[in-house]
């Protein structure tokens, strides 16, 4: 009886020989490929930017490019000083941030701390729909409605193409990004912290501003940075609403050209491949890439630092 049981067990334990599983390997390869596509693309972009940029800088000294204040690539003996494009980008981005950070943060505090469950369920998806509107629509809205119907009445001297309308509308465009991500960060704050704050006699406002917001700071900062990155990289709104005049000015009532709108306008024109004007597109693209890259690195650092302090 006993031996019988043992032999049965031994039989049950007999293992099949291992064999290669090709299906597993193929799946693994396909999945890895999916993960690496974005990395390959990034490298491809850097290389494709790098070569024409180097050729560009062999003809135009890099100091002329970085510190020059006149951008006239299409003129005979054109000048390639990028500062006007940079200032256009900065002015419009600053206007957008001034709109989007207070409104986005305010909306996120309302959604996570004040709104009832019912209101939040309606409001948050509605807000996120705003993020899905094509930017070209925002651009025409800025040009046709905001400038023509509103801004021109407040500032009669405003130009048809102006930085203000582009910046304001761009700000509206990135509100959902900031609001939604900040709200996620604040909603993730443990309710125990809120209870602790209320139990010490905090009002709703004090709980939100002094406890929940600091606890969610790393997520909120990440939301800001993503919003700012979108503003810097945004092309369509500025191309349509801010015009294509590279001007070194900080007057938002004037038209301006940003780095992105120069790339879009020049790239869609009929520049001869290999010409210096053509290569300038890549040089500006490289600068744009480096700026956003540096900002992302900076923000990752910042987020990590806050996380250390608050976790």
């Amino acid at each position: 009886m006993a031996t019988n049981t043992v032999s049965e067990t031994a039989e049950g334990l007999s293992l099949r020989q291992s064999r290669p599983r090709y299906g597993e390997k193929i799946i693994r390869f396909i999945l890895a490929l999916a993960a690496f596509v974005s990395i390959f693309t990034t490298f491809g972009i850097v290389i494709s930017l790098l070569i024409p940029s180097i050729e560009f800088f062999m003809e135009v000294p890099i100091t002329d490019f970085l510190f020059g204040t006149v951008w006239t690539p299409l003129f005979k003996n054109g000048e390639f000083g990028v500062i006007p494009l940079l200032s256009g980008t900065i002015v419009i981005t600053l206007i957008a941030i001034a709109v989007a950070i207070p409104l986005g943060l305010g909306a996120s505090i309302y959604l996570s701390e004040y709104a009832s469950e019912r209101v939040r369920k309606v409001l948050k998806p509605t807000l996120e729909v705003l993020a899905g509107i094509p930017t070209v629509v925002f651009g025409f809205f800025a040009l046709e409605f905001l400038t023509q119907a509103i801004l021109i009445k407040i500032f009669p001297e405003i130009e048809v193409f102006n930085a203000l309308s582009a910046g304001l509308i761009m700000g509206v465009m990135i509100i959902p990004t900031i609001a939604s991500l900040s709200e996620d960060a604040m909603a993730a704050v443990p309710s125990g912290l809120r209870d602790g704050a209320y139990a010490l006699g905090s009002s709703k406002r004090q709980t939100a501003i002094k406890v929940v917001m600091p606890a969610a700071l790393s997520g909120i900062v990440a939301a800001f940075v993503l919003g700012i990155s979108r503003a810097i990289g945004e092309t369509m709104i500025v191309t349509i609403a801010a015009g294509l005049q590279p001007q070194l000015s900080f007057n938002p009532l004037m038209g301006m050209q940003t780095m992105t709108s120069y790339i879009a306008a020049a790239g869609s024109g009929d520049l001869a491949t290999g010409s210096i004007e053509y290569k300038s597109i890549f040089a500006v693209g490289m600068l744009l890439f480096l700026l956003t890259f540096l900002m992302n690195i900076f923000s990752i650092r910042l987020v990590r630092r806050f996380r250390q302090a608050y976790q």
Partner: peptide, 27 residues
């Protein structure tokens, strides 16, 4: 809010704030 100032509470899970020790007490 006035009630909670007179009647404090300690919770099951220590819910210290993400602040310094000093700031927690001073909050």
């Amino acid at each position: 809010i006035e009630v909670r100032r007179k009647v404090g509470m300690v919770f099951q899970k220590p819910n210290v704030f993400p602040k310094s020790i000093y700031e927690n007490v001073a909050y």
